[in-house]
Design a protein around this nucleic acid. Structure first.
Lengths: 239, 239
DNA sequence: CGATGCTTTGAACTATTTCAACCTTAGTGG
DNA sequence: CCACTAAGGTTGAAATAGTTCAAAGCATCG
């Protein structure tokens, strides 16, 4: 069930059988969530944390005047609210952007893991550090790149994150977000988002139709985006 | 020496004497850095991590076309590159925005701490989670708030973070960043940054002259910024 | 077939950048 | 002490980027 999590962690370090068993025993129950439904709401004080098994999810915040900003996108194999176990109160919501399946871990079991499994603890901590690094790159893209380069950067990043968990097929991947949802990722209006997408299409970096993105020229796209994958920490080494 | 760190951690949970001693023994050497100098460079693979003791520091990334984006600001009591101990290669630089003093911890000692001190490990992890939460709020402000509200939000946040480590004096605090540095925080041109600052001055939310910001009306500023401090996790509770 | 939700387009309006000065302050050497 | 300089702050005006409003196109579903 938790294959995607193992792919994610084993991309960055090696796990022994005992550790894998421990993780499996941590994540027992699973749950299905419909598209557009909240997985966790702002203000919640959950007693469990969720691992995304299938689908796309996002963190979001609604501002006082009702606008929405998505602050991260999540793909299978990522913990989406692991931090709730130390932070206690959710300062943001998490929404399923497509039908999702999640596995659930009790906070008491996570706390016990930090007491008895220092290596696994470090790897889960690393997972949250990679998520931080992603947020920083999003800030760079939002603040100092052109909108087209910002979008290209997001697509490069998703391509690699999805590749790790075997959700990439040749040069294409399933990507079910609407242009409005992407506008909420990039902080743009829907109209402008549409024009930015057309810019990438026009330059023939990619095709994007229905629910599928296909990269036409990875190297050119990467160069255009100013994308450097260092921040994803994708090398396997002892941590 | 590490008083600011203790203020930071004890704001969120209680520490016993043994733990405080452990932290003191971790952070031995200290170092001074001149303003505008790099504390860590992008691409470095440090074998130590730094705690900021005095001054203002920032993470930054330079884009391909030479523009700079600051992705976080740091005040005394915060670890600035704790993550390097698991992430190995720095994907961004860290610069001293004013003269800084830092304390240094060996990665080997930090790793040992994760093996023997689960409670302290969780608190350091929490510190990195709060930094994540801050990045997310910056994304919201950059994407969906007016520029004036974005600036107001940053100031509200700094006010509380500085208050925790006793760097606030009544309603004012020392703030040595130039308008160009602030423009690099907000992803704006210098000219526009200047106009946004004048907007907050004009509304009499604050005064900002020389190196000092004074809040005139905290409640009005907070309301204008759409600021909700939940994300800073400032309540003391067992973690 | 009609309804619904997402995408695309045009045009007017607003926000932001860029360029080019000028102003103010603090420090430096004569 | 004063003239000079450098760095940061402020201003105006033209150019570019992004939003808003309004409408039309295009699939999918019952």
């Amino acid at each position: 069930m938790i294959d995607a999590l193992l792919l994610n962690l084993e991309q960055r370090d090696t796990l022994d059988e005992r550790e894998k068993t421990k993780l499996r025993s941590l994540l027992t129950r699973d749950r299905r969530i419909a598209a557009q439904e909240d997985i966790v709401k702002e203000g919640d004080q959950p007693t469990t944390s969720c691992l995304l098994l299938e689908g796309f999810a996002a963190r979001y915040t609604i501002t006082g005047d009702g606008q929405r900003q998505l602050t991260s996108l999540h793909v299978p194999g990522e913990f989406i609210d692991l931090h709730a176990f130390m932070v206690k109160t959710m300062d943001h919501g998490i929404v399923a952007l497509s039908p999702c399946r999640i596995a659930i871990a009790e906070h008491s079991a996570l706390k016990e893991l930090t007491e008895t499994e220092p290596h696994l603890t470090r790897l889960l901590w690393l997972d949250s550090l990679v998520q931080s690094a992603i947020s920083r790159q999003w800030l760079v893209a939002m603040g100092r790149r052109t909108r087209a380069a910002h979008l290209a950067h997001i697509i490069c990043e998703l391509y690699l994150r999805l590749q790790v968990v075997k959700r990439v097929d040749a040069n294409s991947f399933h990507f079910p977000l609407s242009q409005m949802q992407m506008a909420d990722v990039m902080g743009l209006s829907l109209v402008h988002m549409n024009r930015v997408i057309q810019e990438l299409r026009g330059e023939e970096f990619l095709t994007w139709a229905k629910d599928r993105i296909t990269i036409i020229d990875w190297n050119r796209l990467q160069r255009f985006a100013g994308f450097d994958p260092t921040y994803l920490s994708l090398q396997r080494q002892p941590r």
